[in-house]
Design a protein around this nucleic acid. Structure first.
Lengths: 112, 112
DNA sequence: CTCTATATATCGATAATCTTTATATAGACG
DNA sequence: CGTCTATATAAAGATTATCGATATATAGAG
C-alpha cells in the first residue's frame, strides 16, 4: 500500500513550474504570480519557496541565472526536461484531483 | 502570506470522513474502501491511518466504539459536527482543486 | 543619507507521514 | 488441540517538508 506521497510538495512544485511556463521569472515574482493566478487560493512562504527552487534546480527541471545588472535577482526558466515533467505530472495531478472530487462528492452525485 | 496549510493532511482527513458518510466502519475497512472508491489513486499506510483516526476522534468529528463481540475492532461513525465539517471542507477543497487545475492548465485553455 | 520595498538565503522548530515492530484474535487445517 | 494465516489496531522512531524568524543586500524615494 503506497499513499500518494507528498501531495503538498507535488502541488507546490507544479505551481512553480506552471508559472515558469509563461516565461522566465525570479523567486519573488513567482510568489506574487502564483498568488495572483490562483486568486489567492495558493501562496508561498519565502522560507518554503526558495528551498523548493533550489531543489528543482538540482533536479534539472529549472535553470537559474543571476542577473548581471540591477537588483540581486536569480531568474529561473524551465529546462526541456522541466517542460516534459510539468506536462506529465500536471495531467496526472488533474486526474488525481478529479478522482478525489468524485470520492468527496459521494455516490449520490452520479445518479440522476 | 499564508500557504494553504497541509494539503495532504486535509485530503487524508476528508477521504476518511467521506468514507464514513456511507455508514460506520472500522479502520482497516476504511483503508480498503478508500483505495477501492478512489480506483487505487489514494491508499493509506496503517501507520498513517490510525493516528489520523485518533486525531479526528479527539477533535470530535468522529466517534469510535470497540465492538463487544468478535474481532478486536473499533468502529467509527461521523458525529453531527463531523457531518457539517465534511460538507463545508469538502466544498472548499473542491473549489481549491478546480482553481489548481485551472492554474496548471494555464491561460491558453480559457480561450477558444 | 536614511527609510522602505524589493529580493534571496538559511537556520531551527514544528508537524505529519512512513517504516517497522508489537500485540491480539478469528478461522482454517491437520 | 496446535499451528498458520489473515484480520485488526497501536505506537515508537526516522525522515522530510513546511513554517517562522532572522540575516543580508540593494534600488529608489525623499
Amino acid at each position: 500500500m503506497t499513499q500518494q506521497p507528498n501531495l503538498s510538495k507535488q502541488v507546490n512544485e507544479l505551481l512553480i513550474l506552471a508559472c515558469l511556463r509563461d516565461g522566465p521569472a525570479h523567486g519573488y515574482e513567482i510568489a506574487l504570480a502564483v498568488e495572483r493566478d490562483s486568486g489567492g487560493a495558493f501562496a508561498f512562504q519565502y522560507g518554503t519557496l526558495y528551498p523548493i527552487l533550489h531543489r528543482l534546480e538540482k533536479q534539472g527541471v529549472i535553470r537559474g541565472r543571476w542577473e548581471a545588472e540591477g537588483r540581486r535577482r536569480k531568474v529561473y526558466e524551465l529546462t526541456p526536461k522541466g517542460s516534459k515533467y510539468l506536462e506529465g505530472e500536471s495531467r496526472e495531478m488533474k486526474s488525481l484531483f478529479l478522482d478525489l472530487i468524485r470520492v468527496l462528492e459521494g455516490p449520490n452525485h452520479a445518479r440522476g
